[in-house]
Simulated scan of single mutants.
Amino acid sequence: MKQAPNDQDVLHLVDEAIDRFDGNLNDLGSAIGMLMLARRYGWRVVLLIHSPGTVRKYLKILGLPNLREVVPEVGELAQRSKAWRLIEGTSSFWKVVRGQISGVRTALVDPPSKG
């Protein structure tokens, strides 16, 4: 199994994307934002936030074949995601991602727990 990239590896990926980017900086910023969120929430949560087409667009900008190689499947903050909590432990994940089940996708997260 390939070792997960550390923060320096991810920063290097971002720097490479910035160096080669040609286009709208809003797209670059959104792609980098997706990657940074995925580091802490995991790729499954990201797929519940963004459409598959948007994820493909951002991966192309970042020069990545997929998120699975660079971020965890389920990150340490995944439980804060309302969408993740709705589908966690069910077989509905890919149906939601493909749009076969509606009303689950949301970018809303709960505040950090105090204590």
Rank of each mutant, 00 (worst) to 15 (best):
M1T: 09
M1S: 13
M1K: 15
K2V: 11
A4Q: 11
N6Y: 06
N6K: 14
V10W: 04
V10S: 05
H12V: 07
V14P: 08
V14R: 14
E16F: 04
R20S: 11
F21T: 06
N24A: 14
L25N: 10
G33L: 15
G33A: 14
M34A: 05
L35P: 03
A38N: 07
R39W: 02
R40P: 01
Y41G: 00
Y41K: 05
G42A: 05
R44M: 11
L47S: 12
L47W: 10
I49K: 03
I49D: 03
H50S: 08
H50T: 02
S51Y: 10
G53C: 04
T54G: 03
K57L: 14
Y58E: 04
Y58M: 06
L59P: 01
I61W: 05
I61Y: 05
G63M: 08
G63H: 09
L64F: 07
L64S: 03
L64D: 01
P65H: 13
L67W: 00
L67A: 01
R68S: 14
E69A: 15
V71K: 01
V71C: 02
P72K: 06
V74A: 04
V74L: 05
V74I: 15
L77K: 07
L77C: 07
A78Y: 04
Q79S: 13
R80K: 13
A83E: 02
L86R: 15
I87N: 00
S91R: 15
S92C: 08
W94G: 00
K95M: 08
K95L: 10
V96S: 02
R98T: 04
R98E: 11
G99R: 06
G99F: 03
Q100R: 14
Q100G: 06
S102T: 10
S102Y: 01
R105Q: 07
L108A: 13
V109L: 04
P111K: 13
P112K: 15
P112M: 15
K114V: 10
K114H: 13
